[in-house]
């Protein structure tokens, strides 16, 4: 299991488009369970609705955890997406 902490940089927070993008990318690692946690909220990184329900605003501290096949690659991808602001 690997874990890393990132910060939401998107001006509008993790709204629908970034959430969808994260979920879509994370679905590419089927053997790996990836979760994101911020405060008391947790979400499966593959479940777009859960991510949106967490309502992550700009500046929110998010802990990403990957556990399973290819876990380091999955974590790296997730971190990359967060840090790049999901291309925004």
């Amino acid at each position: 299991m690997v874990t890393k902490t990132v910060t939401v940089v998107n001006e509008q927070g993790l709204h629908m488009r970034p959430a969808g993008q994260l979920a879509a990318e994370m679905k590419k690692f089927p053997g790996c369970t990836i979760t994101i946690a911020s405060g008391d909220k947790t979400a499966k990184a593959t479940a777009v609705m859960q991510i949106m329900a967490a309502g992550l605003k700009k500046g929110a501290i998010v802990e990403i955890t990957a556990d399973g096949d290819n876990e380091q690659a999955a974590l790296d991808k997730a971190v990359e997406l967060f840090e790049s602001g999901f291309g925004e």
């Binding site: 927070g13 709204h15 629908m16």
Partner: peptide, 18 residues
């Protein structure tokens, strides 16, 4: 505006709709 109302509403809708 820059307010987070959009994200809050979205978050809340999703929480309910799940």
């Amino acid at each position: 505006t820059n307010a987070d109302v959009h994200l809050e509403v979205l978050s809340r809708l999703m929480t309910l709709l799940m």
